[in-house]
């Protein structure tokens, strides 16, 4: 039964992703790419558990490295997207 639920979730999420951004204007391609890239840093959530669960040394090291890398993706990703969109607004104002 669990597997069936997972397939449901997977199917719905895939369709939603397709539908959400079907009509995006060309100027927003790069910011949208950058913004969704930041969201894919959600791996951070999984990495937190791997890093904090006090397993053996190797697991903790791998988990901590994953936390660090995912944090770069999340923090950097959101900030870069914000900067990009900030520029965009100014340009349009002129």
């Amino acid at each position: 039964m669990e597997t069936i639920y997972l397939i449901f979730i997977v199917l719905l999420a895939a369709f939603l992703g397709f539908e959400l951004i079907r009509k995006v204007p060309a100027t927003l391609h790069t910011p949208l790419m950058s913004g969704s890239n930041a969201i894919s840093g959600i791996t951070l959530v999984g990495a937190l558990v791997a890093s904090g669960a006090e397993n053996d040394t190797l697991t903790t090291v791998l988990g901590t490295a994953a936390v660090a890398l995912a944090s770069i993706n999340v923090v950097g990703g959101y900030m870069v997207t914000d900067r990009m969109l900030g520029m965009f607004k100014k340009k349009q104002g002129k």
Partner: peptide, 23 residues
């Protein structure tokens, strides 16, 4: 790791990324 938010969000990015690539 059986974590629903990773599944849903990851796939959301995966699907929207693919359609964005196509666009």
């Amino acid at each position: 790791v059986a974590n629903t938010i990773l599944i849903v969000t990851g796939l959301l990015v995966g699907a929207s990324g693919l359609i964005l690539t196509n666009i």
